[in-house]
Structures are given as C-alpha cells and as structure tokens.
Simulated scan of single mutants.
Amino acid sequence: MSSLMSTAPRAAPPVAQALDAHIDGVGLLGPGLSDWAQAQAVLRGDVPYDAQKTVLPVPQILPAAERRRATAVIKLTLASGLEAVAHAGLNPADLATVFTSSSGDGRNCHEICAALAGSDRLLSPTRFHNSVHNAASGYWGIATGAMAPSAVLCAFDASFAAGLLEALVQVALLRQPMLLLAYDTDYPEPLHHVRPIPDSFGVALVLAPQAGARSLARLSLDPTAPFTELPADTLNDAALEALRLAIPAARALPLLRALARREAARIVLDDLPGQQLALQLTPC
C-alpha cells in the first residue's frame, strides 16, 4: 500500500505513447444520485436533478464487527466501488486500486478534535485507526479479500484528477484492470466553516487496458495538451454545477455526463491551481 500527497505542478508525461484505458464499470453515490443507472438519466437531462441528501447503505459485505465501526467514508467507497466492479463483471478481490480523497474522513477528524479539546483526551482505538488516510483502502481489503496493490492519494481539490492520472499510469504499467475510487464526505461545524463540503459523494471507475464486451468508452489523456490552462468544463444545470464546485470528488461530473450521453468529447477537468487535465472520451 502506498500513499501520495502533493500540490506541486506536474510536468506533462511523454506523449509518444498516450495514456489510455477503457471504462468497463461505473459506480456513483451522491446527493440526489443514488447509483449510476439513476444518475445517467439525470446527467443526460432526461429527468430533473433533485438534490436529496446522500443515503449511505449499510455495508453488509463487511464482517459484523467491522460493519459496526464503518464510517461514512467506508460505506461510501464500498457502495460505489462494488457497483462499478459488478458492472464490469469482475471479482473485486482481483483488482488493484487507487483511492483518492481531498481530505479523508471529515466527521472522524471532527470527533478526534473534539476529544482532544475536552478534559478527557482518551481516544478510542476505532477513532484512531479510522483517522488514517488509507482507512478506506484497508476496509476494502477486509470486505473483498483483495490482496492486490493499493495506492492512496490526496491532492486537496485536485484529488479526482490526480487519482485518475495515477490509475491511467497504473493501467499502462501493469496492463491489467484497475479500480479508481474517488470520495469525499462532509465536515461538521466548526470545521465545516473552513472546509464547507456539504455532503458525501463517491465515484468509482473500473479501467481496463483493452476493450472488452462491457467496455463503455475509451478514455485517454489528450496527446496534444494533457495539461492546459483552459478552464474546466462546467454543467448547464445550475444545481449540478453547484454540486461539482462544492465537493472535490464531484469534479468528475463533466466526465460522467459525457459517459452517460455516450458522446465523443474532449473533457477538461479541474486539477491543480492554474492547470487543468484534458482528456479524450470515445464511446465503444
């Protein structure tokens, strides 16, 4: 298991061989987006977006003891990740993973800060082991039995782009399917005042090196300009655009919109300040 935290500008990778992968499965859970099947109709504009509070399912796949300790982050990543893997028709135990989040488990961080600010500063072991940034990856391994490599990233508001880039690199190097999980959860007050993430949002993509029977689209870095200063793509629906801006993991929405519409598109996603990530999406 590895981890990475960075905010430094990235150099463009060599473009002699473009980084690409095929999207074989999608999982999604967020405000008013209960799963990928329901979200596709919203992103296509077939039904109006209704920004209901995210409902996090109980992770029945976990053993009872771990299920009781599961935080919002664990429930979110298991729900979105298992949906994506099911769509791809793969065994989750076989997949290497990339987990990426702008700030990890906000509520658990709040509880730890509250305990340290009180007179009794004893922390429960559960609070402590859920505080590390790779907790979601660990619970994924417990739930699925996965023993494959797992990378855990954080790049603040650029975390989705950073995770996607890492997953594309891993697919190119390993030449095997990879699961990307991007997720964020809300902070209670007073931390919410300085990190106003309003709700939970998780997206998972199964990326494969070759097209298969379940492939939805081919995704690649734009070989002419993988990093650009052009502004990121936005959404026409004001409520969906507000969601994209409010939750870092929801920066994935322009990509998911193009995927739901099954359209070929050049997509520019928010990345580090002054630098966006440019992609090409080609439906299969």
Rank of each mutant, 00 (worst) to 15 (best):
R107T: 02
G30I: 03
S137V: 01
M147T: 14
G106S: 03
L164F: 05
H133V: 09
L78S: 05
G145I: 10
A86G: 12
S159W: 08
R44G: 00
D94F: 07
D157E: 15
G163S: 10
V58S: 10
G104T: 04
E111I: 03
G138A: 13
P149T: 12
F156W: 14
R44P: 10
T71Y: 02
S119Y: 13
S102D: 05
A51R: 13
D94G: 06
A115W: 08
F160V: 05
A117M: 10
T126A: 11
I74L: 08
A162W: 01
D50H: 15
G145P: 03
G81E: 07
H87L: 15
G81Q: 11
R107E: 12
E111W: 07
G25F: 10
V26R: 11
D120A: 09
P92A: 07
R69G: 12
L122E: 15
F156S: 13
T126N: 04
D157V: 02
V26K: 10
C109K: 14
S101N: 13
A151C: 13
V26S: 04
A162Q: 10
T144Q: 00
N91W: 02
S34F: 07
A148S: 13
W36K: 09
W36Y: 11
N130I: 04
D50E: 15
S137F: 08
N108P: 12
Q170K: 08
R69N: 08
V73K: 10
L78R: 01
P57V: 05
R67I: 06
Q170S: 13
V152K: 00
L76H: 08
H133T: 06
V73T: 13
V47S: 10
G27R: 04
R107G: 02
A79H: 04
T100G: 13
D50Q: 15
R127G: 09
A151M: 12
A148F: 09
S34A: 11
R69S: 03
A96F: 12
E66H: 14
C154T: 15
L62C: 03
A70I: 04
P125H: 11
P48T: 14
A162H: 06
S131G: 02
L78M: 06
T144R: 00
S131W: 00
F128M: 14
T97H: 12
